[in-house]
Design a protein around this nucleic acid. Structure first.
Lengths: 187, 187
DNA sequence: GTGTTTTTGTGACCCAAATCACAACTGATG
DNA sequence: CATCAGTTGTGATTTGGGTCACAAAAACAC
């Protein structure tokens, strides 16, 4: 469980046993069942989550109760309603488990404490944040430039494993296409 | 010129005169004319730019030479092809001036040197990066959930000043809508 | 295993927005 | 101020993808 977290950090920064022990003081762990909400629209967001195993979706429900998928997150990904997390406010999104999911999570205080106590961690967070920003820009471009078919192909290419794990209905909500259109792409 | 940069930093972190002097050692300044490219698709990207005055667009040209606007940037905004900047690689985007523009710019070494020499600056970069990530997520959601009319209204609401400064053609390329459709929204 | 819910495919129909085409308007530039 | 490029509006036509509807197939529950 914690091993996975450590390996994840060490992809970017090296940590001594002592340093990792310090890091761990800021984390708790928890398990969720398939279908559980980790948080819902309106909840105060106190934590950011590291997915140890499983799969979740970050969704937004519009005024007509249509569900739009902001992102998926699986093993080794971080997820939260980061806007709410950093501003200590309420979620506009909901985070729901598509599979049974185990997470390590920490508070904003923990996040800041780690940055202060261990400059490496500041570098780690910055890299993660930059990475998230750049992949969002790619997705914006994909939404601006491609039709459903190309978009679906890009998705499969970028996340090969998710093609099998996630239902077409969910993928359609992520790509911004109707279920039916996605289904007709094969032909 | 540098005053504007200092004020910008001090919106997030306080800097002594000495600290700011250190910060400035990493920056150079430059002016561009309307229509100039600050960089183009394929150029190696060495710098990140702080816009002191003026207005630029970050664009992507697809295989059919259609132009898509990834973002606008005006006074007090940072811009670059950040993916290329952080990976010391070549631009996939181009950055073009829509108005005469003055910038302060720095290298990745400068960026890292500032983070190391002045932990405050690490915090500053992190905040900026998080901010960029969160606004990208908002834009993704806007592309997923709204029709052209709503999207245009959101745009005007989020960036009131840009409504006047930028031609409709450019705004259409940003919103992912044809010029004609945008023009017909009034009716 | 039987019943229930969720997922997927496909047909029929419709509409929002793309595309093509042209004319009027605005402004730069020499 | 005359020219030429870019901008905006608006009509006519086409089309990609949404919506509605139903049935087959999986997945799940008890």
């Amino acid at each position: 469980m914690h091993e996975r977290l450590r390996n994840h950090f060490e992809e970017i920064v090296d940590l001594t046993d002592q340093e990792f022990a310090f890091v761990l003081t800021q984390f708790k762990t928890r398990e969720f069942e398939k279908g559980d909400f980790i948080f819902q629209n309106g909840d105060p967001i106190k934590y950011a989550y590291f997915i140890v195993s499983g799969l979740v979706k970050l969704v937004y429900h519009d005024e007509n109760a249509n569900e739009h998928i902001v992102s998926f997150a699986m093993e080794d990904w971080w997820e939260s309603d980061f806007n709410a997390f950093f501003n200590r406010s309420e979620a506009t999104y909901s985070l729901k488990c598509l599979e049974a999911t185990r997470v390590c999570y920490l508070t904003l205080e923990g996040y800041q404490k780690l940055s202060k106590g261990l400059p490496k961690m500041g570098i780690f967070w910055l890299q993660k944040s930059n990475g998230g920003f750049m992949s969002s820009q790619r997705r914006i471009l994909s939404l601006l430039t491609t039709n459903p078919k190309e978009r679906y192909e890009q998705f499969l290419k970028e996340y090969p494993s998710l093609g099998q794990r996630i239902s077409k209905t969910q993928i359609a909500a992520y790509l911004g296409v109707s279920r039916e259109t996605l289904s007709r792409l094969h032909s």
